[in-house]
Structure formats: structure tokens, C-alpha cells
């Protein structure tokens, strides 16, 4: 019984990670129908920024996180202005080709700059080990992860639900043409949202490396997981991505623990079942 709770805790922490890495993609896909397969490249960038600052410049772990966010957001703005914006109306096939090309370039660039090896990530002592509460072990890092992810979720929800900017974003996701008709500058709005989404991916990447490791293939390895979260959650839905990430995080871990022989299959089975029942995702409208 206790281990079920432990399992839930671990699964939720893993889910939070998936959520941070995928929420940006969900919103941008929902708003512009732009298929950005390079989303995890931004996560990878965040990871490398954190590793560099920690290992080479001796920064404390937490101080690197905002930089990871800013770096990924800045890189995404450049790419958005130079490449992506030309393809908003080009259909999904050219978008796939463009962003896969960017993934390839990012992988090669990372290998060239940082080498092909795993980056060592040594967390500070106070983030290691676990807390004993009510007879359960709670890993400190997972607690921190959940806290950060929850804080960001609240921030996101408040931004989207209660600010003027959020209202515009919601309008653009719901009906882009109508939003334009109302005088909302959807292009600029999208650029900002895109930067925020990529920044979150960068932050997610920075937080993920301590659990998932970091090497140049990161940009492709976790792309599938991110796509799954987005599809199951529903395009453009923060709540959907959150629920999907929790569900998949817990299902993945539970499956691997209770039926290890089929553990790797379970996440795909859950995804297929969810999408067959709700093709537009948990909270998707389209």
C-alpha cells in the first residue's frame, strides 16, 4: 500500500517534467497549427546552458534555471523570425521538414561544441537524498521538481485566464481568424507565446538533465514523449497537457514497476486508447 503512494509520487514528479517540456508545444500548435518538431532542441539548449554554467562557471544550480529559460526563449525568437514565420501557412509537411532539419543541425552542433559524451550533472547536496515523512521516502529533488512545476502551472493559468495577454492568447487559439478580425496582432502574439513556450522547454530541459541525463541525442529521444503528451492532452490546452503529463507519468512508472515485461509498451497502449476515445485529446476542442 505504501509503495503505491510512493509510486504515485514518483510518477507525478516524472509527469511534471514531461509537462514542463511539452506545454509550450501544445500552446503553439494549438494557436498556429505549427508543427514544431524542434521543440526538444530548445529543451536540450536549456540543459546545456545549465551544465555549462554549473560545471564551468561554478554557478549554483538554481541560479542557472532562469538563464536556461532566457537562452532557450532567445534562441527560439531568432529561429521564429528567420525561419518559422514563413511557414505558418505552408501546411504541416514543409513544417515537419524544416523543423527536422533544425533538429539535425542542433544535434550536430551540440556534438561539435560539447562532444558526444554524457554531461556530468552533479546536484548540490541539499537536493540529493530523500525525506522521511509518514513512513515514506520522498526524494528531495522530486519534491523540488513538483514544487517548481506547480508554481509554473499556477503562473501560467493565471496569466492565461486573468490577464489581457492571456485573453488574447485564448482568443487566438480558439479562432485565429476571428481574433485577427478583432484587431489582435496574432503574429506578434504568437512570437511572444512561442518564446515563452520554448523558454519553458529550456527550463524543463534544465530540470530534466539531473534525472534523464544529457547528450546530443536528447533532442530526438524525448520528442516522442512530448508529442504523446501534447496529443493526449489536446492542442492548446494547458490543463490538458497537465492532466496528460500526470497520467502518462504515473502510468509509465506504474507499468514499469508492476509489469516490467510490458512496461515499455504500456505508455503507448495508454496513448492509443486515449486518442481512440478522444481523438482531439483530453481537453482539446479541435
Amino acid at each position: 500500500m505504501l509503495s503505491v503512494l510512493g509510486m504515485l509520487f514518483d510518477g507525478i514528479a516524472y509527469g511534471m517534467l514531461l509537462f514542463l517540456m511539452s506545454v509550450g508545444l501544445s500552446v503553439t500548435l494549438g494557436m498556429m497549427n505549427f508543427v514544431n518538431l524542434a521543440h526538444c532542441s530548445f529543451a536540450m539548449l536549456g540543459g546545456y546552458v545549465t551544465v555549462t554554467l554549473m560545471n564551468d562557471a561554478g554557478w549554483p544550480f538554481f541560479a542557472t534555471l532562469p538563464i536556461a529559460f532566457v537562452a532557450a526563449a532567445a534562441a527560439s525568437v531568432v529561429l521564429e523570425r528567420v525561419f518559422f514565420r514563413r511557414f505558418y501557412h505552408a501546411g504541416e509537411l514543409p513544417q515537419c521538414l524544416l523543423t527536422i532539419g533544425i533538429v539535425f543541425v542542433s544535434i550536430a552542433a551540440a556534438a561539435y561544441i560539447y562532444g558526444t559524451d554524457q554531461q556530468p550533472v552533479q546536484l548540490p547536496d541539499y537536493l540529493q537524498g530523500s525525506l522521511h515523512l509518514m513512513g515514506l521516502d520522498f526524494a528531495v529533488y522530486r519534491l523540488v521538481l513538483i514544487a517548481i512545476a506547480l508554481a509554473i502551472t499556477v503562473l501560467l493559468v493565471v496569466t492565461v485566464e486573468a490577464t489581457r495577454f492571456g485573453a488574447k492568447v485564448r482568443a487566438a487559439v480558439n479562432n485565429q481568424r476571428m481574433a485577427r478580425g478583432l484587431g489582435i496582432d496574432v503574429d506578434t502574439l504568437f512570437a511572444v507565446t512561442f518564446a515563452l513556450g520554448s523558454g519553458l522547454a529550456g527550463l524543463g530541459g534544465a530540470l530534466a538533465i539531473a534525472m534523464l541525463g544529457l547528450d546530443p541525442s536528447f533532442a530526438l529521444t524525448y520528442l516522442i514523449y512530448v508529442l504523446i503528451v501534447v496529443a493526449v492532452g489536446g492542442l492548446g490546452s494547458i490543463a490538458g497537457s497537465f492532466a496528460a503529463a500526470m497520467l502518462l507519468g504515473v502510468a509509465d512508472l506504474a507499468g514499469k514497476y508492476y509489469i516490467p515485461a510490458f512496461g515499455s509498451i504500456l505508455i503507448y497502449v495508454v496513448m492509443l486508447a486515449m486518442i481512440m476515445v478522444r481523438p482531439t485529446g483530453l481537453f482539446g476542442r479541435r
Partner: peptide
Amino acid sequence: RFPVDNPDFSAF
């Protein structure tokens, strides 16, 4: 035996 792409080993 755990899945190859296993990101998390605490359960095992």
C-alpha cells in the same frame, strides 16, 4: 528486467 529506455529506476 526493465524496459531499455527506462528513465527512472527508483521503482526497481
